[in-house]
Design a binder for these strands. Sequence first.
DNA 1: TAAAATGAGTCAACATGGCTGACGTATTCT
DNA 2: AGAATACGTCAGCCATGTTGACTCATTTTA
Lengths: 179, 179
Amino acid sequence: MSRENTGTSEEIFKDTQSGDVSPLGLPRELVEAVELMFFAYRDFVSDPDTILENHGFGRAHHRVLHFVGRRPGMSVSELLHILSITKQSLSRVLKDLIEEKYIIQETDEHDRRIKRLLLSPKGHELHRNLIDPQIRRFQESLEKSEIGTLEKWQEFMRHLTNTETKIDFMDDAGRKHQL
Amino acid sequence: MSRENTGTSEEIFKDTQSGDVSPLGLPRELVEAVELMFFAYRDFVSDPDTILENHGFGRAHHRVLHFVGRRPGMSVSELLHILSITKQSLSRVLKDLIEEKYIIQETDEHDRRIKRLLLSPKGHELHRNLIDPQIRRFQESLEKSEIGTLEKWQEFMRHLTNTETKIDFMDDAGRKHQL
DNA sequence: TAAAATGAGTCAACATGGCTGACGTATTCT
DNA sequence: AGAATACGTCAGCCATGTTGACTCATTTTA
């Protein structure tokens, strides 16, 4: 996989390993990494997207369904924090999901202002159908990779995410899921 | 705020290593991987997003700028294939970039129907400013990781992307960049 | 050389999912 | 009793994806 150097690059960035530099004067493998982020993410969400279409839902619905499924009983404001979107953006999709009985709301026993969100059996089923192809994609990719790849991949992905994101995800919940 | 496990998970997926299973009856580390994909991607694009705002541009402009920068002289239809969007979606952002002189069009010498796309110096500068924080994010994350992490990460990301995506990216160009 | 195919650009119309600011209502905290 | 919190909702804006139809220049092909 050797590539020739154009020679005219500014080389502000010292290359990590190979000394190979892209036409932008940036380390080629990091520019490739930027592109892999784009392609991998796009393809990764493409399978659920297809399923969602048949239900008249979009990616936003998927996210809500996912996090409610993962953290049953979460409040609306917890969900807002995790998704980092506005109340209005959330309410549109949440309304759909509640009206069509994928998500159930239960008033909190101790603070009746808070509504706890839960998946109905129908919601669980859809969630499962949406995540299945993604899990399968991971498993198939892992089969092609050396052992220990997933751990290293996860570690690096964690480093890439903002600390606030990780704190947000842990804090409001009080549960043991930590990203 | 602890909530008890419902206990009714189907456990169709055998867990890869730990035997640990999420509330969904799916291997927990793979469900976490799905979430890392969401969070890491979101945070990863957040830096350029901020810069783009100041220019009145969006993510779509960024993508065009990036691929034209990476593969100078590419045609409009090659760009359409890589981005996998429609001509209309592309034309809106491409028009902006051409009007504001970030991108230059040159008619192909041998086939005058084809327009070759290039970045102007202004375009290169913006491209550079947009990619810089992403490269830096990678470098900082790498510093926190074991050596060899980038290679493993890239390999796995490649496995995650569709084969068509990879082929598309190689074929139309005739150049040696292959994802 | 006439007809077909290709590359690029455009129009109108639509959907999704972000955003803002303002406001209402129920409930709880001080 | 009044302030703060949690949730919901209205109206409207913007970016970026979609479709289908159509033009125009240029090249290929029958």
